[in-house]
């Protein structure tokens, strides 16, 4: 093995991960966006997106993924997802006597449901990945002691 000192798993795992991680990411985005047509939805698709990041992280070590999505950036994205859900609900207030979470604009398909799906997908994917990151970093710190 040439790169035995490099973090992560062996060369075979890295080569396979290079092929599959992007496909898993695209599949997660597909599941998020077709939540109003077929089975799927924001939660399942968000978990699949988080799993693709976890897959990269298990194969290549944590530095490769931390360059793209570290803890501070992940918590910002997750908060934006939660906040966007609330703002989409408040949009229903814009017309008077309208209830909370009511749809205010006509869409080509299914109203606000795909937008809710995307928002929940953003929240779940970044949040679960950050949770995984926190647990892994915590165990790594405990091993050092």
């Amino acid at each position: 093995m040439k790169n035995k000192e490099a973090p992560g798993m062996s060369l075979i795992v890295k080569s396979v991960t290079r092929l599959t991680a992007g496909l898993i990411l695209i599949y997660g985005i597909y599941i998020v966006f077709r939540g109003h047509i077929g089975p799927g939805g924001g939660f399942a698709g968000g978990v699949i997106i988080a799993l693709s990041l976890v897959h990269l992280m298990l194969a290549f070590g944590k530095d490769v993924v931390l360059k793209r999505l570290d803890e501070a950036r992940g918590i910002i994205i997750s908060s934006l997802g939660a906040l966007a859900f609330l703002i989409l609900g408040i949009v229903g207030f814009l017309g008077f006597k309208a209830p909370f979470l009511k749809e205010r604009f006509e869409h080509f398909s299914a109203g606000l449901i795909p937008i809710y799906d995307v928002v929940i997908g953003v929240l779940v994917s970044s949040g679960l990945f950050i949770t995984f990151l926190a647990l892994v970093l915590l165990t790594g710190k405990r091993e050092k002691k």
Partner: peptide, 22 residues
């Protein structure tokens, strides 16, 4: 307008529930 009845219920009829879940 949603063909998937589950997401029609959870995200439109019961979207307050989905907000609390999030």
């Amino acid at each position: 307008g949603s063909a998937n009845i589950v997401s029609a219920i959870t995200l439109n009829f019961r979207s307050f529930d989905a907000l609390a879940e999030a």
